[in-house]
Write a protein that binds this DNA or RNA. Sequence first.
RNA 1: GCGUCGGUACUCAAGUGGUCAACGAGGGCAGACUGUAAAUCUGCUAGCUUCGGCUUUCGGAAGUUCGAAUCUUCCCCGACGCA
Length: 435
Amino acid sequence: MSALNFKIEKKLDGHLGRAGVLETPHGVILTPSFVVVGTKATVKAMTPEQLKEIGVQVTLANTYHLYLQPGDELIRDAGGLHTFMNWNGPMMTDSGGFQVFSLGVAYGKELSKVVSITDPSLLIPERSTALDGVPRLATIGNDGVSFRSHIDGSLHYITPEKSIEIQHNLGADIIFAFDECTSPTETDRYQEEALSRTHSWAKRSLEEHKKLEELKSAKISQKNLLERSSDEGGRGARPSQEDIFATFLPQALFGIVQGGRSEILRKQSAEVIGAMDFDGFGIGGSFAKEDMSSAVKWVNEILPEEKPRHLLGIGEPEDLFEGVENGVDLFDCVAPTRTARNGTLFTKSGKINMMNAKFTRDFTPIDEGCDCYTCKNYTRSYISHLFRAKEMQAATLSSIHNIYFITNLVSQMRQAILDDIFFEFKKEFLSKYEK
RNA sequence: GCGUCGGUACUCAAGUGGUCAACGAGGGCAGACUGUAAAUCUGCUAGCUUCGGCUUUCGGAAGUUCGAAUCUUCCCCGACGCA
């Protein structure tokens, strides 16, 4: 009994790609789809209404951040994330697994999720010199991860069970197993260790999730009984926290495949995670840009076809094409929103930096022919002015455009699959788009 | 007219004999950003450069000194005070 219902509408001939429909308790997601990231229960600079108007179907918030601030119990008592942030569409939460990486080995370093093998210095294993005195905010144990809060320095310990408990309090439709997102700089040996940890955490996440789902459905029937028996005089009493929790809709849990850059480990992970009773799967971890698509392919050839797959944290146009072609249904990424706030915008011919001098007197739209609100109403010159003047509108108008660009791109890919023109569309787009 | 305090790179502003092509901030120019420590971060910002250096700079001119943005003299400009 899953909280989700996934139906594949059409497959990409001879490839893993597919277009589908994913039903969640808060609505339908047409896949492939891009998930907009709203880490702290808000997509920065955007209102939910603006997201809806753009065509955003689903958003993703973060367990770790919300646990620290304002606290997952507060959000539970507010009625869950949907109510709290006024987003009534499908929602996901990440487990905090990425923070194991970003606040751990990657802390204070120029280390990103996707590396280029043309920069070999990044691929030198660091763990081999271990016991580095480098400060980090996350340290990994076998049972869980210690986090030093980036807000106030307080110490927190997150286990798979804790992550799932928090995610149940937050109440998103799709939640993720607690995993270890490894650095691309780790040795094979470390990747192997980390992977077995991620696998055991996946199992624990699943067990905790099932336990909480059962508890929730038991509470719902208990609550129904109570309501029926006390229908006459029971009005006006404030619902208890447990009652609120019991109103939460069923949640789906995705397991996460890891394995770094190794084909053997990726496939092994897909076997292990794919065999567990998850509602869908995340593909996580570090990739070298050049072999991301083959890694995704290894994994998706093994994962059960009838369940949805989410490629975690990926969102550059060229990567989205590779993902879709290789059987990914969902993507999330901070790139469109973060880069928008930092002044870089997508266009059909590549990214442009609005702070460049050449745009100050450019009275054309960001991307000629784009149907987004920003392009229909504003010029490059104006956006450029807003950035230079450090006006907040710069972030909003730019985010609207970038989110539209990426969201629309993925939904065009979906349509292209349905219309049997995916590869033509891909070729056409990439021929004009310069990285 | 006399007196005092000032005049430093695009701007503000440190520096008051060698460690100064000159702190810092802003601005400008570029770059980065992939499950958000991010409305953030990095680099450059006199000229030339084979990137090791070389050349010309601190209102102007002339001095003192081995050596001056820093000391002296005169001049120009600004603020304030006294006439």
